[in-house]
Design a protein around this nucleic acid. Structure first.
Length: 919
DNA sequence: TGCTCCTGCAA
DNA sequence: TATTGCAGGAGCA
């Protein structure tokens, strides 16, 4: 059967542009999108279709603009770096032999729709290559979608599975959901789930419209509000299949490629793998290098059972082996030892690395070749496996050899698990999650499945694919060895391939490579040690506090009931409404979206001066929050084996480079109120030890002084004075700092912090409770006194606009995806983030560097002290009492030396029996 | 049960 | 109409 591939060129160009880091060739011309598109096209050619076309939008209006003037009004101008790649892209597409279609008056979508249906009607097998979900409406027997960026293929069943409705209902689904990219508003709060549910219940869009009057709840109101638009929405999202065209599917034969032109273009843009292929190299050669295989594999592998399926793009060598015999393991140990770098991965039965049991291990030494060593699989009929001691005994020499380099994906987890089995992994040289994070922290998630889709165009077997999900999920130990091998060995295989794809990109950017090599990689083991150390939490103290809070909540409740004149539930907004607004007759100043009187904090504050009850409710809620979030929950996080709380630090969590903490989050333990602070008393040192907390004083403001080089601000820090007081003296002309009033200092502090977050006069006014004009005057005064700060902010905004990213002192980049958005709100948000990121990010870099130095020093101190927490600008230690003075001095010195700025870094230290006292 | 929104804690 | 996070509860189906 003849085959036709229709390529949605615009979709790929945009997606490749946003998905890939902004690569450039030797001349500095942008090539990222080009690179993505070219690889995709080469993969398409491997499929050897009979007909193909590359379809792009023609400039100018289309019928949709006429129907709906706001159509795509949100869409940003094409960024300069992308526009520059359009012409070369067309040249390459043409030289590869693809017909390029560009029809005025309609969108590329409609051209594709028309050709696709015409071809399907002629019995041609059609593949539409696109990343746009709207095309799901075209799917039918003989017409499928493929997304080469993710490797996913959508046929009839696939559409049903992905969207929950058949292809014929996709336009209805889209009409309900709307499309913010194209500026088509749908039903508010109606996402894919709700839309699919309605369509299943009522048949089609007309059915949903007919049922609208009876639809309950907020969402029903939203539906009724959107009713008038839905018809137009459906028209806008319907891809036309009847565009008059001067050609048909069979006119789209591929031409022979123009090798001469291609060679020139490939060379110019530095596409070495593509060049090699052109010059006679095989796909397998290129694949092993890490470029081409990505997209080719996406086609070849999607839907295939991985265990037994060698990857054709890898030259048929791909092979996943399940190791259950000592001889086989011995052979693998030899391979690991001989390899310049090997990838490894552990499989366990729990997400918590400090509780998980080792179920198996996988290794890979070259792309396409990997093994899985099952240890604990246990299901009826399962074959015998090597025992844990034997396996770890054989692997220990290579795992603990610092000269044998390893790569992992989120290897901190694996290090933890192996450590608990007595293996101290050394030579952990690379981590693909961190490579992705450093290359582009905001690009997407950094889990392996996402990375494989993004950088390799490869669809991995997901954990749910082998274990199921939700209530039906089984532990990995019950997965059949064949499937387990397919999943686990693939993890190691893909990790190695990701390393080969990502590391060269880091090497091309020395500053990024340094962030990765000098900061992130050394930090992995430091964080693992901090997590393993854990912190001692006094559960009895928390229980006492819970009890105390409960009593006070009860007391507040009694008083509230007395004030209200009758009992009611303080937790029920509905009852509160009745009491406050109906029975007590207080004014309802704030409304919920539904138009009901709100009982949120703002609403209660607003009427707190008229009655005692609102204040009481706020007090009750505050107590309930502390109890519900902290005193009741923290004891559940105590590890039964160690008796301590082991948080998990996420190294690729915050885009700015900060760490985040979860399970439990130890970076948001209360401190600002007395009641909250008490919780910190439960974070204790064991007998004979002390808690030591060392924190950077005003580190982000100091970084602002450094980056702005503003003489006034630098002087304030050099003088070692209270910087907010100094700022107040400057801005309010109070003369000597001693003459500054408390209010002036408070205002100066608000300005100092507000500016770092890009706050407006409006925000400052609200913060200080003053008029907007007055706030504007303060800001103007501030900038007049500190002109360097204003210039720095303007420079930062400009850099963000021009380059699309900002960077820290150490070269870490933060890409700002919305900086050129036409949507005012998004763009303003991106500008604020741009101003904040260099400061927050530099602070994060500095403390990470300090942690590495401190950890190295602690290693030689014989366990007299241990690092146990990091809270953004603070490091917390547990130390032998006699060791405290030395610890304070040595840690302070290393924290100060972690960066050399134009202003001094100051570290404050506190010591106590618990975390509260240490402040 | 899982999803979304809201609220509130930290630096 | 202030940055970066994580987490609990309510409301909803």
């Amino acid at each position: 059967m003849p085959r036709l591939v229709l390529i949605d060129g615009s979709s790929y160009l945009y997606r490749a542009f946003h998905a890939l880091p902004p690569l450039t060739n030797a001349e500095g011309e942008p090539t990222g999108a080009l690179f993505g598109v070219v690889n995709m096209l080469r993969a398409t050619l491997k499929e050897a279709p009979d007909y193909a076309a590359f379809v792009v939008d023609a400039p100018g209006r289309t019928f949709r603009d006429d129907l709906y003037p706001e159509y795509k009004a949100n869409r940003a101008e094409m960024p300069q770096e992308l526009r520059a790649q359009v012409q070369p892209m067309c040249e390459i597409v043409a030289a590869l032999g693809f017909p390029i279609l560009r029809e005025a008056g309609v969108e590329a979508d409609d051209v594709i729709g028309t050709l696709a249906l015409a071809a399907a009607a002629q019995g041609i097998e059609v593949t539409v290559s696109t990343g746009d979900k709207d095309f799901a409406q075209l799917v039918r027997p003989g017409l499928r979608l493929v997304n080469t960026m993710t490797g996913s293929v959508l046929d009839d069943a696939g559409v049903m599975e992905k969207f929950g409705v058949p292809p014929a209902r996709i336009v209805d689904l889209l009409a309900l959901m709307g499309d913010s990219v194209d500026n088509i508003p749908g039903v508010e709060k109606c996402g894919p789930k709700t839309a699919a549910k309605w369509l299943t219940a009522y048949g089609d869009l007309d059915g949903v419209i007919a049922a609208a009057p009876d639809m309950k709840g907020k969402i029903g109101e939203n539906l009724r509000a959107a009713l008038p638009r839905l018809g137009l929405n459906r028209t806008l999202v319907t891809i036309r299949t009847d565009v008059p065209l001067a050609f048909g599917p069979t006119d789209l034969a591929l031409r022979p490629r123009d090798a001469g032109t291609l060679r020139g273009l490939y060379a110019r843009y530095g596409f070495t793998q593509a060049l090699r292929e052109l010059d006679g190299g095989t796909a397998a050669d290129a694949a092993a290098e890490g470029t081409l295989r990505n997209t080719a594999a996406g086609y070849a592998r999607s839907g295939a059972a991985p265990a037994e399926a060698p990857d054709p793009a890898l030259g048929g060598k791909g092979e996943y082996e399940c190791v259950t015999a000592p001889e086989a393991l011995a052979a693998w140990v030899e391979r690991l030892r001989a390899a310049p770098l090997f990838a490894f991965d552990v499989e366990t039965d729990a997400l918590d690395a400090l509780r998980a049991r080792l179920v198996g291990l996988s290794f890979s030494v070259e792309p396409g070749r990997a093994c899985y060593v099952p240890l604990l699989h246990d299901y009826p009929g399962c074959q015998p496996q090597l025992d844990v001691e034997t396996v770890l005994g054989m692997l220990r020499p290579v795992l603990e050899d610092p000269a044998v380099a390893k790569v992992g994906q989120h290897g901190k987890y694996d290090l933890h698990v192996l450590r608990r089995y007595g293996i101290a992994v050394r030579g952990y040289a690379h981590d693909t999650m961190l490579q992705s994070f450093v290359l582009n922290s905001t690009a997407s998630r950094h889990d392996m499945d996402s990375l494989a889709a993004r950088y390799l165009g490869y669809t991995t077997t997901r954990y749910e694919d082998v274990c199921g999900k939700g209530a039906k999920q089984i532990p990995f130990s019950q997965v059949e060895l064949e499937h387990a091998t397919g999943y686990a060995a693939e993890d190691a295989d893909v990790t190695l391939r990701l390393h080969r794809a990502l590391h060269p990109r880091l090497e091309a950017e020395p500053a990024l490579l340094s962030v990765y090599t000098d900061i992130e990689m050394p930090l992995v083991e430091v964080l693992a040690r901090i997590e393993a150390n854990g912190v001692l939490v006094d559960a009895d103290e928390l229980r006492r506090q819970s009890h105390d809070l409960a009593l006070r909540m009860h007391e507040a409740e009694q008083r509230a009931h007395a004030l209200a004149g009758r009992p009611f539930s303080l937790e029920s907004p509905k009852q509160l409404q009745a009491i406050l607004f109906d029975e007590l007759g207080l004014p309802a100043l704030v409304k919920t979206p539904k138009g009901q009187p709100s009982t949120n904090e703002d609403a209660l504050e607003a009427i707190a001066d008229q009655h005692d009850l609102p204040r009481l409710i706020l007090e009750y809620r505050g107590l309930a929050k502390l109890r519900g979030t902290y005193t009741d929950k923290l004891p559940n996080s105590i590890n039964p084996d160690t008796g301590r709380v082991h948080t998990s630090y996420h190294q690729a969590g915050a885009a700015t480079g900060r760490l985040s903490s979860s399970d439990p989050n130890l970076q948001n333990i209360p401190i600002r109120t007395e009641d909250g602070r008490r919780i910190r008393r439960a974070f204790v040192a064991p007998p004979g030890r002390r808690i030591v907390a060392c924190d950077y004083s005003q580190i982000e403001l100091r970084i602002m002084a450094h980056l702005s080089e503003d003489p006034g601000l630098v002087r304030a820090f050099e003088g070692g004075v209270d910087v907010h007081r100094a700022t107040a003296a400057e801005v309010f002309g109070a003369g000597a700092p001693e003459a500054v009033t408390a209010d002036q200092r408070r205002a100066a502090k608000a300005i100092n912090f507000g500016l770092m977050y890009g706050m407006s006069a409006f925000g400052l006014a609200r913060q200080l409770g003053i008029a907007r004009g007055e706030a504007q005057d303060y800001i103007a005064l501030y900038f007049a006194r500190y002109p360097g700060v204003r210039d720095f902010m303007e420079r930062t905004r400009e850099q963000a606009r021009e380059r699309g990213y900002v960077e820290t002192v150490f070269g870490r980049r933060l890409y700002l995806n919305d900086i050129a958005s036409r949507n005012q709100g998004l763009r303003a948000g991106a500008e604020r983030a741009a101003i904040n990121a260099p400061m927050q990010g530099t602070a994060a870099d500095i403390i990470k560097r300090a942690m590495i130095e401190v950890d190295a020093w602690l290693a030689g101190q014989g366990g007299r002290a241990a690092m146990i927490m990091q809270v953004h600008d603070e490091l917390v230690f547990e130390a032998d009492e006699a060791f405290v003075p030395e610890l304070v001095q040595e840690v302070g010195r290393r924290m100060q030396a972690a960066a050399t700025l134009r202003v001094p870094l100051v570290v404050d230290a506190g010591v106590g029996g618990n975390w509260d006292e240490a402040h």
